[in-house]
Design a protein around this nucleic acid. Structure first.
Lengths: 140, 140
DNA sequence: TTTCCTGCAAACTCTTTGCATATGG
DNA sequence: CCATATGCAAAGAGTTTGCAGGAAA
C-alpha cells in the first residue's frame, strides 16, 4: 500500500485546487514547488503517475500534447483549443462510447480516450477581429 | 508546392505497403532504410509529418504512444491492445462523433481522436492459459 | 526495523532543427 | 537557376530511472 507522505498530500491538494484546468505534471510541479520548494520534480511525476494508475485521479492524454491530470474521475471527455491550448470538459455517460463502438470486437476495454481539437468560440472571434492570430497556444 | 522527390515516393510507398499496421515514424524509417540505406531518419519524419499536415495520410495519436501514421484517410478510429501493442481499425461514419458531442459547444472542430485501450481477445486468452503474461507490449 | 519514498542528476525516448549540400521544376 | 529538400548530427521537450539517504508504519 502506498504511504501517506507529506509530498503526496501536497501534490493531491494542488491538483484538486486546479480542478478544471487539466494541468500538466510540469504545471503541478510549478505550483507545488512554489508552495513547498523542497518537493522535487521527479516526486511530482511519480505521484501523479502512481495515483492515475490507481484510478484516484484521471490521466488525460490528448494527441500531441503533454500528459495532463484531472482530479475528476467520473466519466467525461475533453476538448482542447488548438489556439489557446485550454482543455475543457465534455460530459457524457460512462461506458456509452465503448458500448457504441466495440461491443463485438472481443476487446476488454480498459480505457477510452476521446478528444476533439479545434478552435474555441473566443479564439475564433479574436482571429476574425484581429488580423494576426493570437499564436498563444501555450501549454498551460 | 511540395517536390516530387525520390525519398517522398519511397516513404509513401512503404507506408502504403504497411497499411493496417499503423506504423510509427521509426518503423517506417526502418523499412525505408533497409530498402534504401541512404534515406535519413530526419527525412522520413519530415515527410510523414508534412503529408499528414496536408491530409494525404492520417496521423494517428494514441494516448501514451509514439506517433503513428496510416495511409487510410477516411473516417475511422483506432483501438490498441495494451498487451501486444497492436492497433486495429474501428469503422465509423465521418463527423458522427462531433455531431453527437459538441454541436453546441461553439468549437470549430478540426480533429477528433477516439481511442480505446484494452486487451484483445488473443492476448486475454493467452493470459488465461499461460500463468505469466506475455509482457510483450512492444511498439510495433 | 524494514520497506517504501524522496531528491538529485543523469539517462532515455521520440521528435525537431540548424546548416551545408544537393536537386527538382 | 534557386527555392526547396535532404543528410547529418546535435538539440530539445517531456518523462523516467538509479542510487543513496530519509521517513512512514
Amino acid at each position: 500500500m502506498q504511504r501517506n507522505t507529506l509530498q503526496r498530500k501536497r501534490v493531491m491538494d494542488v491538483l484538486t485546487s486546479l480542478e478544471g484546468e487539466h494541468p500538466s505534471a510540469e504545471r503541478v510541479y510549478e505550483r507545488v514547488h512554489t508552495l513547498f520548494p523542497t518537493v522535487s520534480k521527479a516526486t511530482v511525476y511519480r505521484i501523479l503517475k502512481d495515483e492515475a494508475a490507481h484510478g484516484t485521479i484521471l490521466g488525460v492524454d490528448l494527441p500531441r500534447d503533454v500528459g495532463r491530470y484531472d482530479s475528476r474521475t467520473d466519466g467525461h471527455y475533453h476538448i482542447r483549443c488548438r489556439v489557446c491550448g485550454r482543455v475543457s470538459d465534455i460530459e457524457r455517460g460512462d461506458g456509452e462510447l465503448s458500448r457504441m463502438f466495440v461491443n463485438d470486437s472481443g476487446f476488454e476495454i480498459e480505457n477510452v480516450q476521446l478528444s476533439f481539437t479545434g478552435v474555441c468560440a473566443e479564439c475564433a472571434k479574436q482571429m476574425k477581429t484581429a488580423s494576426a492570430p493570437s499564436a498563444d497556444a501555450k501549454k498551460i
